[in-house]
Amino acid sequence: MAILITGATGCLGGGITRQLLAAGVRVIGQGRDLRAGAEMVQQGAEFLPLDLCDPVPLEPVLAGTETVFHCAALSSAWGRARDFQALNVDATRRLLDAARDGGVKRFIFASSPSIYANGSDRLDLTEDAPLPAHFATHYARTKAESEALALSYDQPGAMRVVALRPRSIYGRGDRALMPRLLTAMRRGTLPLISGGAALIDVTHVSDAARAMVLAAAHAQKVGGRVFNITSGESWRFAQLADAAADLFGLTPRRRHLPYGVAMTIATGFEALHHLFRPDIEPVLTRQAVVSLGRSLTLDISAARADLGYRPQVTLSEGIRDYAA
């Protein structure tokens, strides 16, 4: 039986693909990046060049599939509400319907801890921590909606659904955390919101992928639940930046920005871009200010206890691996 991975050309989907191929599993990867898809085929996977927003029947795609890892999403701090709704919610609903009707046994959904962010410091959050009444971005709002939607399809004896919230994935295939940090430092200036004192958890892509695979293995037992995932250690943003700068030989000038000032600047940038450059992400967004200026750390004891999850890559090791 085959395993389908949506968003297989992305960071997390690519990590799952590599782990399953190494275990000798037949993998079908869905994605829109043809170049990355060709590389997947060379590694031994099958590639499906499909846009999940296209109105094509998904039942044939799922024929003979027992497990779906749904990693495809519009993940951005900027964009139109209708685009986030189309891919993160509407496409997820279509995939869930096709999976349920096609006899899929396990549906593992990649959610996001961004749904926890409320503009304040939040530490050691468990999965039942209250979510904000109003989400900071379209991405967070639609991920919360799609997570709830996915879990509503869980049915004992039929299709089990498990959701994971991996925090700040980095490593091979990362197009967000490390590339943005390195770009800022290579320009010569590193903005430190709130002095870079905010605590953040990060997750190496191999740990995040391993957690997804473990969720599938334990789906019959933990179906209907959600799990936080990190690499098990928290760092100050300034510490993370210093570690990356040392490995890449960079010496950026630090620019300290108070949280309130950064949020005012980001709000102004967003207003201007909405009016004059709606398709271009501002250099500073409110999501970035919240993400880098407010602490957010997660409790992963449930994943340890019920999935057997054990982080294996420390941040120092992960950054060295990324640098290589």
Score class of each variant (00 low, 15 high):
Val213Gln: 13
Pro191Glu: 04
Leu272Val: 15
Ala288Glu: 10
Gln239Arg: 12
Phe237Ala: 12
Glu281Lys: 08
Asp207Arg: 08
Pro282His: 03
Thr251Met: 14
Ala262His: 01
Trp235Lys: 10
Thr230Asp: 13
Val205Asn: 03
Leu272Ile: 14
Val261Met: 12
Pro258His: 02
Ala288Asn: 10
Trp235Phe: 15
Asp279Tyr: 06
Glu270Pro: 01
Trp235Ala: 13
Ser194Cys: 14
Ser234His: 11
Pro252Arg: 02
Ala288Ile: 12
Ala271Thr: 04
His204Ser: 05
Asp246Ser: 14
Thr267Gln: 01
Tyr259Met: 13
Ser295Phe: 05
Ala219Lys: 10
Ile193Leu: 06
Phe237Lys: 08
Ala241Glu: 00
Thr297Glu: 01
Val222Gln: 03
His274Met: 07
Gly223Ser: 04
Ala211Arg: 03
Ala198His: 07
Thr264Glu: 12
Gly260Trp: 02
Pro191Cys: 12
Leu247Phe: 01
Asp201Trp: 05
Leu250Ser: 02
Asp201Arg: 00
Leu298Gly: 09
Val222Arg: 01
Thr264Pro: 12
Arg253Phe: 01
Ala216Trp: 10
Ala209Asp: 05
Ala215His: 10
Phe227Pro: 02
Ala197Asp: 11
Thr297Cys: 01
Ser194Asn: 15
Val213Gly: 07
Leu272His: 15
Ile280Val: 13
Leu199Tyr: 12
Val290Ala: 14
Arg254Gly: 09
Ile200Gly: 10
Arg277Cys: 06
Ala209Gln: 05
Ala217Phe: 11
Asp299Asn: 05
Phe227Asp: 11
Asp279Met: 03
Phe237Pro: 04
Lys221Phe: 14
Glu233His: 05
Arg294Ser: 06
Val261Cys: 15
His273Thr: 00
Thr203Asn: 07
Phe237Glu: 04
Phe269His: 09
Asp207His: 09
Val202Leu: 10
Pro191Asn: 05
Leu192His: 06
Ala209Thr: 07
Val283Trp: 09
Ala216Phe: 10
Ala243Arg: 15
Gly195Met: 14
Glu270Met: 03
Gly224Tyr: 01
Met263Pro: 02
Val213Ile: 08
Asp207Ser: 08
Pro278Lys: 01
Leu199Asn: 13
Asn228Tyr: 09
Thr267Tyr: 04
Asp201Tyr: 04
Asp299Trp: 02
Asp299His: 00
Leu247Trp: 04
Ala262Cys: 01
His256Gln: 13
Thr264Met: 12
Thr203Ser: 08
Asp279Leu: 04
Val289Met: 00
Ser234Gly: 08
Asp207Met: 07
His273Ala: 00
Pro258Leu: 05
Leu275Phe: 15
Thr230Gly: 04
Ile200Arg: 11
